[in-house]
Computed example of a mutant assay.
Amino acid sequence: MYRPLNIIIAGGGTGGHLFPGIAVAREFMARNPESRVLFVSTGRPLELEILTREGFSHQRINVSGLKGMGLFGKLRAVMKIPGSIWSAFGVLRRFAPDLVVGVGGYSSGPVVLAARWRGIACVLQEQNILPGITNRLLSRWVDRIYVSFQETRFTEGHAPAIWTGNPVRKEISYDDRVPGIFSVDSSSPPFGLLVLGGSQGAHSINQAMVDAAGRMGDIGPLRIVHQTGIQDAEMVRAAYDKYGISSDVRAFFNDMPEQYRKADLIVCRAGATTVAEISAVGKASIFIPFPHAADNHQELNARTRVAAGAAELILEKDLDGESLVNRIRRLVEHPDDLRDMAERARCLGRPDAAAEIVDDCYQLLEKRV
């Protein structure tokens, strides 16, 4: 029987940080429903919406990032640090956590540091192949680091790093008993194309798909599910309607497990959570990394899958409707290649990542008693 714990999950800002934290939180709750979980971050609307839907409590702290800011922006961010650490101490005092899990993003910094100074057990979860700046800075001050890629490296003197894979929600995982997961059958049209731009959408991918819409007539029966973000939804929907393409266009999907299951091919960014989920469900993909991601980590994430034959890659500088539709057409016409790519992706999946992390956290806490 696992004892109940008070867990703070610190960080977020994007779905890429938040969803792995939710997967770990769910696993802690599954071990003992008497456990309590509190998320601490800057409280962006997307975070609050998702956490409210998931039933988790949230506490906001006022902190800003430094990377990519101008001189005055950096000065304002630095001036917030003492107040954010003081706020973090208040959160720790009221919640009394047994463990703090930092999931990346600048809002995790004050919480992890304050917890360390109070002698509370702290661990990090790093989603990307190249660690983010916050996790790099915190890596010397924590008890464990759980990494998503075997190739991930931290600087000398960091805490022990354990390769677990990136935690994904349990409903997003390969299961050969469930129709649609890792199933490509060209004899059963329409072909399912899932287009994702991340939690905020991706204008360049949306624009390329609009340009591609008029070139898809010779591909055959096609069904496109496209997550656009708010601003481009109507533009994309109108393009598909103009060319008679069966589609489901929405700003954001709350039923991603179902959408993954129905897809034969996925066109998407290469954030760590997206990469992990695609591997977990065993799907072929065309990655279009966001070129302005910190330290170009999305391209690095994507190239690990391309090197394994589990995905294809189009850099944004090379992206247009013609190049995209040519890749899609080739994969539709060669289902054996599509199946091979999907199988290779599935073999890279680590669907038990959250369970491995929680197992190790319990072991860590037992040693500290």
Rank of each mutant, 00 (worst) to 15 (best):
I9V: 12
A10M: 02
A10Q: 01
G11S: 01
G12T: 12
G13A: 04
F19L: 04
G21V: 05
A23D: 03
A23E: 03
F28A: 02
M29I: 14
R36H: 11
R36N: 10
R44W: 10
L46I: 15
E47A: 09
I50F: 02
L51W: 08
E54A: 08
K67I: 14
G68S: 07
L75W: 14
R76F: 13
M79S: 15
I81Y: 08
S84C: 07
F89N: 13
G90N: 14
V91A: 03
R93K: 15
R93D: 14
D98G: 01
L99F: 08
L99I: 15
V101C: 05
G102R: 04
V103N: 00
S107K: 00
S108D: 00
V111S: 03
G119K: 01
A121D: 06
E126Y: 03
I133H: 14
I133A: 13
T134L: 09
T134S: 10
L137K: 02
L138V: 02
V142E: 07
I145Q: 00
I145E: 01
Q150K: 15
E151S: 06
E151H: 02
R153K: 14
I162P: 07
P167T: 08
E171P: 03
I172W: 00
I172M: 05
P179I: 10
F182H: 14
S183V: 13
V184Y: 10
D185W: 01
P189T: 10
L193V: 07
L194C: 08
G197Y: 11
N206E: 11
N206A: 11
A212V: 01
R215F: 03
G217F: 07
I224P: 12
V225E: 15
V225S: 15
H226E: 10
I230N: 13
E234L: 10
M235H: 07
A238W: 00
D241H: 14
K242V: 02
Y243M: 09
V249F: 02
R250P: 05
F252L: 10
K262E: 13
K262Y: 02
K262V: 04
D264L: 08
I266S: 03
A272G: 14
V275K: 00
A280D: 04
A284T: 08
N296F: 03
E299G: 13
L300N: 10
N301M: 14
T304C: 12
E312H: 12
D318H: 13
S323E: 13
V325L: 08
L331W: 14
E333G: 08
D337G: 10
L338H: 06
M341A: 01
A342H: 04
E343H: 09
A353D: 06
E356N: 13
I357A: 03
D359V: 05
C361G: 07
E366K: 14
K367T: 15
